[in-house]
């Protein structure tokens, strides 16, 4: 076969040309600060296994400005990812009860309530209730 099908040129900067493409790339980019988050946890897991002195050193490391900056970025990125991800659920898996479909806003809100619940549960596990009495 010696056909030469026309292949339109596709520069690496294609995603800069439309707001929707830029939004897509921004969402893809949320995993870069996420990798720093996982690295922080890996370091923490290692420090926790090494003993108390090592753990205190880790807590001090967490308070360095550049670490705070990158972890804040990871937090914002995870919330942005959550915002895009939660909107998908009612579209991919609409919940029907009889002839009624659960409204999308309710499903999205329920997922945000889940995020809040996990935060409160972890705060409780870390003795938040005792510490603030």
């Amino acid at each position: 076969m010696s056909r030469k099908p026309y292949q339109p040129p596709m520069p690496a900067s294609w995603w800069l040309k439309h707001p929707a493409y830029r939004f897509y790339m921004l969402r893809e980019a949320t995993v870069v600060p996420l990798l720093f988050f996982v690295a922080s946890l890996l370091y923490g897991l290692y420090a926790l296994g090494q003993g108390e002195a090592s753990w205190l050193h880790y807590l001090a490391w967490l308070q360095q400005p550049w670490v705070i900056a990158l972890n804040s970025l990871a937090l914002v990125a995870s919330l942005f990812h959550a915002w895009t991800f939660f909107a998908l659920f009612p579209q991919v898996m609409p919940l029907r009860f009889g002839s009624r479909t659960l409204p999308a806003w309710l499903m999205v809100s329920a997922q945000w309530a889940g995020v809040l619940l996990v935060i409160l549960a972890l705060w409780w596990l870390l003795g938040g209730v005792d510490a603030h009495q």
Binding site: F37, L62, N71, A74, I119, A121
Partner: peptide, 15 residues
């Protein structure tokens, strides 16, 4: 990432 990461980032890493 949507459910667990915000809580751990907020309370442990940035707590």
């Amino acid at each position: 990432v949507a459910m667990l990461v915000p809580a751990i980032a907020l309370l442990v890493l940035l707590g």
